[in-house]
Amino acid sequence: MVSIRVTERSIATNVLANLQTNIAKLGDTQNRLSSGKQLTKASDAPGDAVLAMQYRSDMTNLQQYSRNADDGISWLNTADTALTSAVEQVNRAKELVLSGMSSGSGGSQDARDAIALEMDNIRESVLNLANTQYLDRPVFGGTTTGQIAYNDDGTYAGDTGQVQRTVGPSAKIRVDTPAEGPNGVFGTGNTQIFGLLKQISDDLRTNPANLEDDLGKLNQATTTMQAGLSSVGARVNRLTQLQNYADSRVIDLTNQVSTVEDIDLPKTITELTLQQTAYQAALAATAKVVQPSLVDFLR
């Protein structure tokens, strides 16, 4: 007789190993089902694990971009409000200059003095607007550590540093508004708004003939301010777009992390049912197969 010998213990060893495999699978599926995760350690799927980690760190980045954009938008909105008011004030100044001019050199000096007084007020209020702060920093002051962008005499107290917000992998957007210098919203040289308003006030009092020239410069200053204003608006738009993009990417990535890490519920439940059935079948078969031996049939 040359056949493979089978003994009770060899059957038991095999059956035990198979039952162990079955229940290990069942336990694994139950574990995944109760935790809701199919990826809990890197060895479960090293490729997916690195993706999950990459997604998570990308998410942190994008959430930070969104926060940066929030901050940038507030910063720009502050500048926007200040500039809009400043432009209104300057427009009023133009009207005043015109009325000062229309009264002509023959007009009453008293009236011009009154206009000059209002002009001084306008200069003061534009100066205040130029010193508008966002979170204790003057929005027109560059990167200065000081509290103001312009001194009372109209000289610039800020610096030429740029304030930028990173809102995308390679998107750095300037959120401060250059105030002084060739591109500054408040002009430079003899069209610098504070110097100009002072000049107009002086001219109203002493040299009305120069007012026409002043009006030209004032128009120029208004144009510069409006250009600055539209630049602020454009940048707010860009920030908003990039922030929307970052927010929607965060949602995408959350989905992707979930795809990689979380279980497919119907699939896992089906698997669990199948494995339970397999395990019960194995148990039933074991109970039936291992039990009988020749002992049962003797006598």
């Binding site: 493979i4 010998r5 089978v6 009770e8 060899s10 060893t13 031996s293 020749l294 002992v295």
Partner: peptide, 8 residues
């Protein structure tokens, strides 16, 4: 086990 074990 099959070769050396006891078969009842």
């Amino acid at each position: 086990e099959a070769a050396t074990g006891v078969s009842l």
